[in-house]
Design a protein around this nucleic acid. Structure first.
Lengths: 207, 207
DNA sequence: TAGATTGTTAATCGATTAACAATC
DNA sequence: TAGATTGTTAATCGATTAACAATC
């Protein structure tokens, strides 16, 4: 049997292609080419064609790709031809900004619940949500069948919250706390830490 | 002449090493090994040793690395043995969360100014800052000699804001708007778009 | 048709890892 | 000393690119 394994690094670029295509769609464009996508993203045209060819033949010689069609195909591949409900844990500044973020719309995700431990916050409103008690998190996540959570608690609490989320059945974690967390192999983790990105840039700045 | 070029992918890992080491420092630890750092980050010990060897010999056979010393060295390499002032552009939910973020402390950065175009926001307070008028941004950035900015405006305005920041002398941009921006080669850009990370994970989720 | 662009192959390039002498 | 761990080399592994036949 031939395994159809796609490298992680290829998967990592697909969302960028999708974002560019959705941008073009907004600009009322109808077709594009691997070259144009590449120019927008700073990636070679050959690489984009190679990446896409892992999943099928989506283009036409001479004319390129139909934007709407390729968007549809990428949505299927990335499993965002549906909407995923997410739980936000932590109702501080970051958690609140996430809960109110407009950028999830049309990209496959929506915030469904917001949790905190602070009795002052529980029961209060953040955007369209009522902040729920973290003591109820396992019950609520299981009841709703939620598989994705975003961690927006202090670094010192992130591992503990992560353990609880895994126990609750979460399969994908986006961690805003500036710390590495350990999860079982079946759970995916991604990190957002602005300082990491800043340090990647200041290396190149002259003092 | 032998160029001492360090691959971007190596630079990208150094901030992770630094973050792990600072975590260990907080735990009152004094020495560590490439193996331990690797385990915390899911990176091989050999790779960590190889990465560090690009910059010097920081360890001791048999005992490993002195945590405080390695932190100091990495800070020097990444140029965070100083504090960089940053401008935040956009005083919405994301801009406000950034302006109040406590996670910059001790990691080499601090927010110095916050800008917006909205007359309702200008003059108002966000954390320790008074929101300033974006019409003054070039003048203010040049006057303070700021080289790093964070973009937290709607996607439709991000390119325009980026152009203005480059014109103002900014050399590093952290873009929270979910869109690719074009800048001259001398300017570094990094992106924070939660949806990109989410899509990298849902690919692996079973429906 | 002529020009453009795909999908794919093979070659190149670069990154990771295994292994080990050196040495603390 | 014996055990541990570094820094480095060479081998392996994987990713990127150049090139082009196919074809719209």
């Amino acid at each position: 049997m031939v395994e159809n394994f796609t490298p992680d690094i290829v998967i990592g670029r697909l969302p960028l292609y999708l974002r560019s295509l959705q941008q073009m769609e907004k600009e009322k464009r109808h077709t594009t080419s691997s070259q144009e996508i590449g120019e927008r993203l700073g990636i070679s045209a050959a690489q984009i064609r190679k990446d896409l060819s892992q999943f099928g033949e989506f283009g036409k010689q001479g004319t390129g790709y139909d934007i709407n069609n390729l968007i549809m195909e990428l949505r299927k591949i990335l499993k965002v031809d549906r909407v995923w409900d997410m739980a936000v844990v932590g109702a501080g500044d970051i958690g609140s900004a996430i809960a109110r973020y407009q950028g999830f719309a049309d990209r496959g995700y929506r915030v469904s619940m917001v949790f905190d431990v602070d009795p002052e916050k529980i029961g209060g409103r953040i955007g369209a949500f009522i902040v729920e008690d973290m003591d109820k998190i396992e019950e609520r996540i299981k009841e709703k069948g939620i598989e994705i959570a975003m961690i927006a608690v202090p670094a010192a609490k992130a591992q503990e919250v992560s353990d609880l989320l895994v126990k609750s059945g979460i399969k994908a974690l986006l961690n805003y706390a500036p710390i590495s967390i350990n999860v079982p192999d079946i759970v995916k983790v991604q990190y957002i830490d602005p300082v990491i990105h800043l340090q990647r840039m200041t290396f190149y700045l002259s003092i």
